[in-house]
Simulated assay, not measured.
Amino acid sequence: MRILLELFRILLIFGIVGAFCSGILTNVYQNFGIDYNQYGYLGSVAILILLFIVYRNKLQFSGWYKGKKEKLPKRVTQVLFVFSIVLLMIPPLLQFTS
């Protein structure tokens, strides 16, 4: 039962927080004149990666699941973070270069 509750919690975190952050990112991109319909999926993937990092390093320790809980290795966290920042920066670069 705890596993189902934790899965439901993960879906809520990723769904609600991801949608909220995507909405903010959409407004930021639109204010800069970036076509969100064409490049928006890159920002959404970056948000999901960032949420994954936060969940694995912080939020998993406060949930219902009592199984093996390990933080991501520091190097993996750094690589994923840089990759998500690059994904966030690609739409403005593509928009302004084309």
Rank of each mutant, 00 (worst) to 15 (best):
Q95M: 09
L48N: 09
L59E: 05
I85L: 15
K71T: 03
V82Y: 12
M89F: 10
G23T: 02
P73E: 00
K69E: 05
R56G: 06
T26W: 08
I16M: 10
L94E: 05
I13C: 01
I10Q: 14
I47P: 02
L94R: 04
G67W: 00
L5R: 12
I13N: 07
I53A: 07
I85E: 05
Y36H: 12
Y65K: 02
K74P: 07
G63Q: 02
T26Q: 07
I16R: 08
F14P: 03
F61W: 03
V86R: 00
Q95Y: 10
R9C: 11
Q95F: 12
A46S: 13
P91Q: 02
L4W: 13
T97P: 01
R2F: 05
T77H: 01
N37R: 12
F32S: 11
L42S: 02
V54Q: 11
Q30E: 13
L42Q: 03
K68V: 15
F32R: 05
G18W: 02
S84F: 03
L80F: 13
V79L: 10
K68I: 15
Q60M: 04
N57F: 06
V82E: 08
R56V: 11
G18T: 03
L42H: 00
I10T: 08
K71F: 03
D35K: 08
L93R: 07
L87F: 10
V82F: 13
E70Q: 08
V17C: 08
N37S: 15
V79N: 03
V76A: 14
N57A: 07
Y36I: 13
F52P: 03
T26G: 01
K69D: 06
K71S: 03
V79F: 12
Q78F: 15
A46W: 01
V76H: 07
L11A: 15
D35E: 12
F8R: 10
I24T: 08
K74L: 15
Q38H: 06
L7S: 10
S44L: 11
F83C: 10
V79H: 03
L12H: 09
E70T: 12
V28L: 11
V17T: 14
I47M: 00
A46D: 02
I10W: 08
I13E: 00
S44R: 12
Q95E: 15
D35M: 04
L51A: 04
K66P: 01
F14Q: 10
